[in-house]
Design a protein around this nucleic acid. Sequence first.
RNA 1: GCCGAGGUGACAGAGUGGCUAAUGUGACCGCCUGCAGAGCGGUUUUCCGGGAGUUCGAAUCUUCCCCUCGGCACCA
Length: 479
Amino acid sequence: MVLKVYNTLTREMEDFVPLQGKKINMYVCGPTVYDHCHLGHARSYISFDVIRRYLIYRGYNVNYISNITDVDDKVIYRAKEIGEDPFALSAKFTGSFIEDMDTLSVLPPDSRPKVTEHIPQIIEAVESLIQNGTAYVTHKGNVYYDLTRSGEKIGVLSHQTPEGLLEGSGSRVDVENDKRYQLDFALWKVAPEGEAAWDSPWGRGRPGWHIECTVMSMKYGSQQLDIHGGGMDLIFPHHEAEIHQSESCTGKHPFSKYWMHNGFLTIDQEKMSKSLGNFFTIKEVLKKFPAGTIRFFITYTHYRSTVDFNEEALEEAGRARRRLLNTISNVRHELSEAPEDGNDCGLLDLIEQTRNAFIRAMDDDFNTREAIGELFVFSRKVNSIMTDEKPGKTSLENALDFYSEINEVLGIFEDNKSAAPEENICELSEDDILEMIKIRDKARDNKDWKKADAIRDELREKGIVLEDGKMGVRWRREN
RNA sequence: GCCGAGGUGACAGAGUGGCUAAUGUGACCGCCUGCAGAGCGGUUUUCCGGGAGUUCGAAUCUUCCCCUCGGCACCA
């Protein structure tokens, strides 16, 4: 089976063949840290986290780089607005971002470079572009990339013509700019007196937005990447600018073999934006929903499609995920009562079948929706087998291992380092719980249903669910 | 204007040229249970935006039309 990937560059589904063997350099554009991250960020980074994990699952050696843009106009303006030091501000939100990612079980990248720690390398790169004639310095001291020299390459990624681009942006063009050509983009910008800036051969200033990714992807990855990812909104101008710069810097083509872009997240069918007042930070949503639910919700959609966020959808995702978790918990209980050397009752075949189906789905451009669909089928069958037959220990252990194996890729069964306070309020120890169950069992023996139910209700309120089965009472923590 | 995504059951959302189309949620019925929960079985389900064409056969290919959403140099 071959892994297929949709490549924005060619707009086609392509067989995935890395530049060199099993080694993959993968770069995903990180956030600009001028505020807490929002759900759109979560969508993007969870999507690429799953892609990364799946590549590892398929035996690739993945070097995953994701930067932090900790200085740019937005950071500066926000800092000014609230009267804070820009570096303190970006440090604070960098911390907030890493915390969110951790809560959502997004694995930390192999490298997480910051712009402010790479100013000399950025200056060096800009210098080399000036030297090879693809960048120019203006009288104000700004440095721009000279797109007229890239000629027909304008639109390589966005697939737009220069005319189309100019027309769309018509009213937004900054009249004061000193560019030679309107589509030229900044590599270095002069900073006004008193603003955060660095000395450079062209005066005190700051890097343009795009050059950082070029520099850092080369430093921590390679001159040529296998996968470059980010949100669809980055296709133009950001990623296209990266292509121009990087290929001019290195003389190597392509800068990245595959370009992957995740779709947007809308809120109640509308684009998330501050002006519409439908802007949710990850932290806000975590107050209402467990991290696992959010991760499941995002993973249960294809990374390229637009996904609509609303509370009902999240609740539905939570119930769906719960179904899978219940099955896992059912298997665990069954395991404790399973015969040492029982029959596998077809479980092993079922696991093998499901694994193949999972891989088939994921190989198709990371079709997580279908992959999870297979998990539901699997779980239903596992439940059936367990009610009808008595599978042996080994086969049940295999089933649990299989769930873990899947979780390594999707991360949807992680429990549950949510920031949601109500999730961790259960102050009862295991002994307390077992004690109450004992009392309730006695009541049940005496057919004192009232008392038994009261205990059950009480525990339920504290997040402990009791289930009476043939083999006795089972309990689990749930919120 | 240019570029892109999409229109599938109550809702969400997969999908292959050919057994009346996955999966989840919801609703209802049944089994199990003291009850509940979890689970299982069944029903809701011939549902593929519209027209024309290609084909023995299309939701799936071609073409035209209608509609929705998004991007176009702040943006994941």
